[in-house]
Amino acid sequence: MTDPRPFVHESVLLDRVLELFAPVPSGTIVDATLGGAGHAAALLEARSDLRILGLDQDPFALAAAQARLAEFGDRATAVHARFDQLATVVAAAGAASQPIVGVLFDLGVSSPQFDRPERGFSYRNDAPLDMRMDTTRPRTAADLVNGLDERELASLLRRYSDERFATRIARSIVHARPVTTTAQLSALVVESIPAPARRKGGHPAKRTFQALRIALNEELDVIPPALDAAIDVVVPGGRVLAITFHSGEDRLVKERFRRAEDGGCTCPPGLPCVCGAVAEARLLKRGGWAPTAEETARNPRAASARLRAVEKLPARPVEDQR
């Protein structure tokens, strides 16, 4: 799929990503959210002994990434896939002959997806109510808005954006159906929220659009299995990095990385482990990394980013697991 407009997305925490992958052995890094290939290209430029296996579910992003990575020849491969298919893609690529030494997740929606009105991600422009990251999938945000009942809509808004006025918004949507455009939905949300609440916290429709986007693209549902698969496929000494942009994503990454660190230990804190849990990885920093003030000034969308990382541990001998 081609598009005459460039897919321009500034890679967040790029220097930190390069620093964290610098110690990994030679092999392949899986860029599970390839986007415009900013991180991927920088890694290939920094290390001539690395290859990139990139995944992206957005056909427009994939085409842009393939064009950007063309100069690296067979050192870069781009696949149309969502990152919860990571294990399958790695197996098909033949990881046995090229060890997986790292996996990178840059979660959330990209700038080009937001900035192109026809994608329907933004409440700032009038466009069809789409919001699909993978435009080959049939279901759109309009299907959710017009297909869920009032209770289901309200639950969705509360679950994915903590919307205080979820019930009022859901009721307005149901009464106004069919709702087919971003402008129509945005107006309904604004009208549903009391005037005092509309004066603070940014645009009143921000949370509703976020919730619909997350639900439609199953953004949070696919994170835990994808992280587990990433930790599973990397070799000892390999690293898994995840960049998040809101608390829901960060909470899931923190939980999965913590589980990899303690092996899912169920023993009381402060006591020796007797439950047989086996650690798979070590945290590279508790709390993770945030962008520098300089990066945030240059790219305001980076302000909410958080990077967490783990390193795969060597497998313990069988006798040590008894």
Rank of each mutant, 00 (worst) to 15 (best):
S186E: 15
S186M: 11
S186Q: 11
A187Q: 15
A187W: 05
A187S: 15
L188E: 11
L188W: 05
L188V: 14
V190D: 05
V190W: 07
E191C: 09
S192Q: 04
S192G: 09
S192D: 06
I193L: 11
I193W: 12
P194M: 11
A195D: 04
A195Y: 04
A195I: 06
A195T: 05
A195V: 06
A195W: 10
A195L: 08
A195E: 08
P196L: 00
P196N: 00
P196V: 01
P196M: 02
A197F: 08
A197Q: 09
A197N: 01
A197V: 04
A197G: 02
R198M: 08
R199C: 04
R199M: 03
R199S: 12
R199P: 05
G201W: 14
G201I: 10
G202V: 05
G202W: 14
H203Q: 04
P204S: 08
A205Q: 06
K206Q: 13
K206Y: 11
K206N: 14
R207H: 05
R207Q: 10
R207M: 01
T208A: 04
T208D: 00
T208F: 04
T208M: 01
F209Q: 11
F209G: 07
F209V: 08
Q210K: 09
Q210N: 07
A211W: 05
A211G: 03
A211T: 07
L212C: 11
L212H: 02
R213I: 07
R213N: 03
R213T: 02
R213Q: 10
I214C: 12
I214F: 13
I214Y: 08
I214P: 02
A215L: 02
L216S: 01
N217T: 11
N217W: 10
N217F: 09
E218L: 10
E218C: 15
E218V: 14
E219R: 13
E219W: 06
E219H: 12
L220A: 11
L220G: 09
L220S: 07
L220W: 09
L220Q: 14
D221Y: 06
D221H: 15
V222L: 07
I223S: 08
I223T: 10
P224V: 01
P224A: 12
P224H: 06
P225K: 13
P225Q: 13
P225N: 12
P225Y: 09
A226F: 02
L227K: 14
L227T: 07
L227E: 11
L227H: 13
L227G: 13
L227C: 12
D228W: 00
D228G: 11
D228A: 06
D228T: 14
D228M: 07
A229H: 03
A229F: 00
A229P: 10
A230M: 07
A230F: 04
A230I: 00
D232E: 08
V233I: 15
V233D: 00
V233E: 00
V233F: 02
V233P: 01
